[in-house]
Design a protein around this nucleic acid. Structure first.
Length: 418
RNA sequence: GCGGGUAUAGCUCAGUUGGCAGAGCGUCAGAUUGUGGCUCUGAAUGUCGCGGGUUCGAGCCCCGCUACUCGCCCCA
């Protein structure tokens, strides 16, 4: 019989990795909590329409990467901002406070070709702050995302920041950009040619050297932004300076979702391969309204957990060890097994992490197993011990043995550690 | 959707001009008849990814397929 394998681009998270993820998730939750962000969980799938309207029909994600089913009615979530905003509107969260600060850790699904740092099912953590247009929340959001990564002692990071203005401000610029690029139409790649019609802004982050050269003397989006947008941006930058957050501005930073307005940012790492973006985010002041809610400005970010883990691996990050078992019980013979089970559960009731042999193995094999588990004590129960109503207690690190009365231990399990 | 690379034991990988299928790690057993780690000795485990072709003979050469992987596009 042929064995079945997991779908391409998915991961089996075995104990050795699950421990690492648990550590990271705990660390991340702690920081979100410290910043007074509250957790939100949404369904694994949503109406397809939500992503069409939220992310944009022309984006790569919506046009070709979604896992959709039931006649395209539903889609596994490819990103979290649209669902969070949907939940915000649907549950009238705006009635609770002027600003909602929410965070999530959840799995996302995108049907792309898998490669290093890119999976079809992957984990993102991120935050959304909904309701404020103030530059101060931009600063908190960017600082928060940077601080989470910094808390893991990651080096070789760079934070890039840009502002892309509102759709109104952009439209004037886009026609100028189109005019300019049209002159070079024959030097543009096929992709850029189509983008020129559908989404000219995306041409800005091309990686083709020849196109970058053409863009050198292209009109600058920044010059088309109105005074408030520029002021907002400079306030964000000086606020980050005040918090000693290192960044560089990058006018070519435009992000792949249609909903972004004003501030955008991204953190990249040299330790990732081709997928060098570990974290991305920005302001999306029109999305709430676009999804049918009472207009509310918002800003958020998302970070890839798997990419974070790749970086940590490259940095030889030392994850804390898991807690070893305290006690391992070694029964010899049938009668001893029953006695051992009773004792095992008694110890657990007392909150002592413990295990026993379930394979009727030789004492030698059992001690080997206990050693592997890092057990502090091994309790040996065999015919001789049962005869005398005692248990042999072996302290592993000292290789010393003592005896203890079975009754005493049952009454006071913590006697072991005194 | 488009390119490159790889596929041999549970894991990491050797395998020469085509000539008996290998190592390290891990597992198990023994040295120690009821005592772990360290050491020594021994053992088990293979559809050499799948299908075809060439050949006296294929893990090795040729063709096709599949899977995995890296990259392009895009993104976390």
């Amino acid at each position: 019989m042929k064995i079945l394998k997991k779908p391409a681009g998915t991961l089996d998270i075995l104990p050795v990795d699950a421990i690492k993820r648990k550590f990271l998730e705990d660390r991340i939750r702690k920081i979100f909590d410290l910043y007074n962000y509250a957790e939100v969980r949404t369904p694994s799938f949503e109406k397809t329409e939500l992503f069409r309207r939220g992310i944009g029909d022309e984006t790569d994600i919506v046009s070709k990467e979604m896992y959709s089913f039931k006649n395209d009615e539903f889609t596994l979530k490819p990103e979290m901002t649209a669902p969070v905003i949907r939940a915000y509107i649907e549950n009238s969260l705006f009635n609770r406070s002027g600003i909602q600060k929410l965070y999530y850790i959840a799995n996302m699904y995108r049907h792309e070709r898998p490669q290093s740092g890119r999976y079809r099912e992957f984990t993102q953590f991120g935050a959304e702050a909904i309701g404020s247009n103030d530059y101060s929340i931009d600063i908190e959001m960017i600082a928060l995302s940077v601080k989470i990564i910094e808390s893991l002692n990651i080096k070789n990071l760079s934070t890039k920041i840009n502002t892309i203005g509102s759709p109104d401000e952009r439209s004037r610029y886009l026609s100028e950009l189109k005019n300019y690029l049209s002159k070079y139409i024959n030097d543009l790649s096929e992709i850029s040619k189509t983008r020129l019609e559908k989404n000219p802004l995306r041409i800005l982050d091309t990686k083709i050297p020849a196109e970058i050269e053409i863009l050198e003397s292209a009109p600058l989006l920044y010059d088309f932004l109105n005074k408030q947008t520029k002021e907002h941006f400079s306030n964000v930058l000086s606020g980050l300076d005040g918090l000693d957050i290192k960044y560089s501005t990058d006018y070519r930073l435009v992000r792949g979702f249609d909903y972004y307005t004003s501030t955008t940012f991204e953190v990249i790492s040299d330790d990732l391969g081709a997928q060098n973006a570990i974290l991305g985010g920005g302001r999306y002041d029109n999305l709430v309204e676009q999804l049918g809610g009472k207009p509310a400005p918002a800003i958020g970010f998302a970070c890839g957990l798997e990419r974070l883990m790749i970086i940590l691996e490259k940095n030889d990050f030392k994850y804390p060890d898991e807690e070893n078992i305290k006690v391992y019980i070694s029964p010899i013979g049938d009668k001893a097994v029953k006695e051992s089970l009773k004792l095992l559960f008694r110890l657990r009731e007392a909150g002592i992490k413990c295990d026993m042999d379930f394979l009727s193995r030789s004492l030698k094999a059992q001690l080997k197993e206990a050693n592997k588990f890092g057990a502090e004590y091994v309790l040996i129960i065999g015919p001789e011990e049962l005869e005398r109503d005692i248990i042999k207690v072996k302290k592993m690190d000292e290789s010393t043995e003592s005896e203890i009365k079975l009754n005493d231990l049952t009454n006071k399990p913590n006697l072991l550690f005194q």
